[in-house]
Design a protein around this nucleic acid. Sequence first.
DNA 1: CAAGATTTTTAGCTGCGCCTAAAAATGGAA
DNA 2: TTCCATTTTTAGGCGCAGCTAAAAATCTTG
Lengths: 213, 213
Amino acid sequence: MSRSSQREDHLKALYALGESQPSSWVSTTQMASHLGVKPPSVTAMVQVLAELGWAEHRPYHGARLTPTGRKLALSLVRKHRLWETFLVARLGFGWEEVHDIAEQLEHVDSVELVKRLDAYLGHPQSDPHGDPIPKADGTFHPEGEVFVLAELNPLVRCEVKAVREGSDATLSAMSAKGIALGSVLMPSQIEALPAAWLEQLMVCKTVDDGSAD
Amino acid sequence: MSRSSQREDHLKALYALGESQPSSWVSTTQMASHLGVKPPSVTAMVQVLAELGWAEHRPYHGARLTPTGRKLALSLVRKHRLWETFLVARLGFGWEEVHDIAEQLEHVDSVELVKRLDAYLGHPQSDPHGDPIPKADGTFHPEGEVFVLAELNPLVRCEVKAVREGSDATLSAMSAKGIALGSVLMPSQIEALPAAWLEQLMVCKTVDDGSAD
DNA sequence: CAAGATTTTTAGCTGCGCCTAAAAATGGAA
DNA sequence: TTCCATTTTTAGGCGCAGCTAAAAATCTTG
Ligand SMILES: [Mn+2]
Ligand SMILES: [Mn+2]
Ligand SMILES: [Mn+2]
Ligand SMILES: [Mn+2]
């Protein structure tokens, strides 16, 4: 794949880490651990991104995306999630198998390809992990009320809407326990879940519709 | 894509050029012009391939694949042609649009992906250009009698079986003139074809089945 | 607030894949 | 067969993306 797939991965990391915390300034150390490289490598790359106009770098404070960089990052996230959807919905992969493959496919450069893939998949709004797929213009479909299962208190019936990134083994284990997007969890089941899962499962409350199921 | 996609492209060039000529020894100049790089770059790469046990290099004479290298090259050709088939058969691309995209997709590294893609496409035996798709074990389905249209003498009714690599523009022009795989060409039509096309179109003779068409 | 601990950047290095220019080998013509 | 033109390799250099070690800045803590 092209020489700049590293740049693209740094851009994605900057986006992902910036979104998931109050301040959008991301430290090079954070990015380094996310990407599996050493902090000096990130510093160098962030300086390149800054020269390209895709990021701002405040030395010793952190980096964050410019509007242009954010658009690019969103188009990468879009590609990643469309490919994951293809792999699961069309090729029959399990949700725990697709991340690493999509990590490669997302760097294939062809606007037309993304357009056609999106249409082929029926313009999906979320990927196999429940994460929303940004639209071509970089906006998202409005999302429902979703929060991390660990914050559910008191325990009530709820529905799995998404799974946060974790190890492939964890995702396999969840599948094995019958947990998938759309699964309904009862308080008793939730108590039996490994503690770590409570931090990964994103749910919304569901009203009992009266069906026995 | 991984750092070694350059190695993979050199391997493919070595395969393609070696197959298309009597001696399987390929000169670095040939490879350089095929790949769009300068001869010294090819020399360096060929030396790397030799160290990896994928090619033999006889200095000042040329290079050729080892059995191991040939297997690897065939698996790349397989991936390339499966992706081209996917792009045309599933995403609706034209046959002139898919080469460059497949040139990227072929470097995605996942054995399982190729397996599932092949099954999803119904184990196709040839790609959108009529080129045979190597099987997973590196063998080909037996091919029919096919030759280049320029060698057809005298002119008789024949059927288009494949198109040799050429510019995307040429492929578009052929489509526009109604030429596709399976097209039947009559002597009068053949005479009207641009001379260059005669070197690219691979055909076999067809008996007139009596239908008026 | 000053000193030490921690984080981050800079400096300097490596391997990869490309380049140009120069040297070496090959092969064809006189 | 010898010399010259052509092909090919070697030499030396560049940009990218990673690394470690050292320097610089920031944060923490007494
Ligand atoms: Mn990636
Ligand atoms: Mn996902
Ligand atoms: Mn390629
Ligand atoms: Mn093809």
